[in-house]
Every structure is written in structure tokens, then in C-alpha cells.
Computed example of a mutant assay.
Amino acid sequence: MGQTSSTATPTTLPEFALHCLRVADASPADGKLEPFFDYLIGVDAASSVPTNAQAAMAVPTPVELARVLEANEGIPIRLTVYNAKTQRVRDVTLTPLRDWHAGSGKARASLLGLSVRVCNPAAALESVWHILEVLEGSPAEMAGLVPFGDWVCGWAGGPLHGESAFHDLVEAHIDKPLRLYVYSADLDNLREVVVIPNEKWGGSGLLGCGVGYGILHRIPRPATPPTEYFPHTTGHVDAARA
């Protein structure tokens, strides 16, 4: 995505990276970083505040990333990004800005319009739920969920973790709007879907659809084997806005 070049996936990913959860509309990151699938695994060491003097690229902590952005406001910086869906690494050039929200009349606290969280990119596509059969007249059908072509990647509160997480989330939203982030394999895009789980629609289940979880139900990945290497790197569990 964006004006970038990409290479094949590294044989060894960093243990921790900055997971891109949300990208604000019209922000510096809009159209260049892909929410839920992109992970920041490096910051250009030529930036004013390099994160690791021993390496050309190093995984920043949220605090280090914020420091780099502050020091380079209005100056293009280069990020190294791993995409879990394509299994490729690419360079992305962004310019941190505070006045990116047109017409707001206010400076933005976020210099990129990006919400990030530290987690393990190797497990990026493990916690997704494949939409299977969708029953006629069900909440799932009313929300526009597509059987076999859609995967639930997260919700308005962020990613989900563990096989029972999606079931628990649905149970907690009976008769209440539930905002999900759904990936379409047919269109290769991530969209927002609002569904209202309920028992009144006249069929079986709160959503009226089958859901698959596990290795047989993960988002399809490219068959090309990884060929490149990135050094093993550790980080800290945290969350922040960039």
C-alpha cells in the first residue's frame, strides 16, 4: 500500500512489533498503512532519534516511536513494515504532521493518525474467525457478512485473542450494536460491519451464521516461501497512538 517497494517475508520475524490497529481518515498514514495486517518492525536510523545505534533498522517501542515522530515533525521518515496478509516487508515514507485533519482548526495529538499496540507478528493471523454458512434473514445476513469470503479480524475494541473470544464478544452484545472489522478475500479489503446479535430473528444462534476458527480457517496466504532475514528482536507490551 502507498508508494512503497516490498520484499519477501523474513525467515525470522521480530518477537515484538508495533501492530497497526487503526488508521484515521485523511491522516499521514491513510492509504499507506493497513490496519490489522501491518506491523512496524523498523524505523530509519537516519531519523533524528534512532532507536538502535547498532542496527540500520530496529523495532521501536511506542515511546521511542513517539520520540522519533516529535523530532521529525514535518520531515519525511522511513518505516519498515511487515504485512501479515501478504507476508512481505516494505518501506513506507510518512511525514508526521499535527494539522492533517482538514477543517478541524485544531492541532492533532497524533502525528500520523495511527493507533498501535505491541504484539507478536508471528501470531498475526491466528485469531481470525471465518464466516461460513449465513442463514437467510439472520443478523449476519442483514449486516452483509459473506459466507466463506469474510473473516472477522477484530472489533471496535481492538483484536480478539483465543478461540472463545469471538463467542464471548457476541454474547456480551445481545440486542446491542457490535462493530466488527471484517476482511474480504474477494475484494482484498478490510471493512467495518455493524451487527446486532439477538435471539428474536427467528432462527438458530445469535448471529445466524457458522464460524470457523483454527488453522483450516485462516486468511489465505501466498504460497511463496520466505527468503529474507530480520534479526530476532524483543520489545515491551504496550499501547499508544502515533
Rank of each mutant, 00 (worst) to 15 (best):
A56Y: 11
A8V: 01
L69W: 06
A172I: 06
T95I: 14
V118M: 14
I215A: 10
E64I: 04
F230Q: 12
G154D: 02
V68L: 02
L114K: 02
E192M: 13
R221N: 08
D38W: 11
H217G: 05
L207F: 05
G210H: 07
E228K: 01
G202P: 03
A172S: 15
P35M: 13
G154S: 04
H101Q: 15
L33F: 11
D175Y: 09
R179H: 15
R88L: 12
A239Q: 15
Q87G: 13
S5H: 04
A140D: 09
L132N: 02
G42L: 10
V116D: 11
E141W: 11
G154P: 07
A124E: 03
A58F: 02
E126N: 08
T234G: 08
N189S: 06
V92K: 05
V116M: 12
T95H: 10
H217I: 04
S184L: 07
G157L: 00
P50W: 02
N189I: 08
R22D: 09
S104P: 05
L94E: 12
I215H: 05
C153T: 07
S27W: 01
F230S: 01
C209D: 09
R108M: 07
N189K: 08
L180T: 02
L169T: 09
G212L: 00
M57S: 12
K200S: 05
A156R: 00
E141V: 10
P231H: 08
L135F: 08
S110W: 11
R90S: 15
A71K: 04
L216S: 01
A71N: 03
Y213T: 04
A223H: 09
V59M: 12
S5I: 03
T227V: 12
F36H: 03
G212V: 00
A124W: 02
V193Y: 01
L169E: 12
L178C: 06
